[in-house]
């Protein structure tokens, strides 16, 4: 069986020609089912481009991206939409909830696009919200919730349809330390339950929570190490922050 994620010699070039920017330069990366990988890099390192690529939001200029055995590097917009819907749960730095919808409606959104019948959809959404500890706030709108709660809604939205990959882009970037810890705990627990988690961050303290750390700079992968200190609790993270 192939890898879950297989990035083969992928490059992404913006503004081809004189002022071209090589955001990704012949990158190779494989991730197995059940891994917890942190991709760490400074801003401008190409980590955002890599995350867009992994999330099927963008297509490579050259190279191949195999996801779940499918070549997704040359798909049409609609095909990419379907792959995102089926395969990937996004957790963004800015939460990216729709302000006019309640927590539950936000969580139901990807299920609507998948065509899940209403009753089943509602059950899945409620289960997911309970899973992140928001069983009592399902009718609240994002503006009525704290940042940590909003991010938990976003996590519920990402896991409601049980996609194979959780793609978290600086999930704690907009949160205070208490909420950050909660969110990291939830993500770690989701990994323990067997989900594949890809965490994109610039913060080494957060990256240390992962079992594998991939460092990227100048569009190239600089190191790819197994993290022996991967901690099951949030303590290491706390220590690091202080």
């Amino acid at each position: 069986m192939g890898k879950l994620v297989d990035v083969i010699d992928v490059s992404k070039i913006y503004n081809p020609g004189e002022n071209e920017v090589r955001a990704l330069d012949h990158v190779n990366l494989s991730i197995d089912t059940g891994e917890f990988v942190a991709i760490i890099g400074q801003s401008g390192s190409g980590k955002s481009t890599l995350m867009n690529m992994l999330g099927c939001l963008d297509t490579p200029t050259s190279g191949t991206y195999m996801l779940h055995g499918m070549d997704v590097s040359h798909m049409t917009d609609n095909e990419q939409s379907d792959v995102r819907n089926r395969e990937i749960g996004f957790i963004f730095q800015g939460f990216n909830l729709i302000q006019s919808l309640t927590a539950q409606e936000n969580v139901e959104l990807p299920l609507i696009y998948r065509g899940v019948p209403k009753k089943e959809r509602q059950e899945l959404a409620v289960t997911a919200l309970q899973r992140v500890g928001l069983g009592k706030r399902m009718d609240h709108r994002p503006t009525e919730m704290s940042g940590g709660q909003q991010q938990r809604v976003a996590i519920a939205r990402a896991i409601a349809q049980a996609p194979p990959i959780l793609l978290a882009d600086e999930p704690t970037g907009n949160l205070d330390s208490g909420s950050s810890r909660e969110i990291i705990e939830i993500i770690k627990n989701l990994h323990k339950e067997g989900r594949t988690v890809i965490l994109i961050t610039h913060d080494p303290g957060i990256a240390k929570q992962a079992k594998r750390i991939v460092t990227i700079s100048d569009g190239r992968i600089q190191s790819d190490i197994i993290n022996p200190d991967a901690d099951v609790s949030g303590e290491a993270y706390e220590k690091n922050r202080e």
Binding site: G55, S81, N85, F90, N96, L97, I98, L109, Y113, R157
Partner: peptide
């Protein structure tokens, strides 16, 4: 953008 990232087709 959010809707598209969640799998909304064109």
């Amino acid at each position: 953008g959010i809707r598209k990232s969640l799998g909304a087709r064109t």
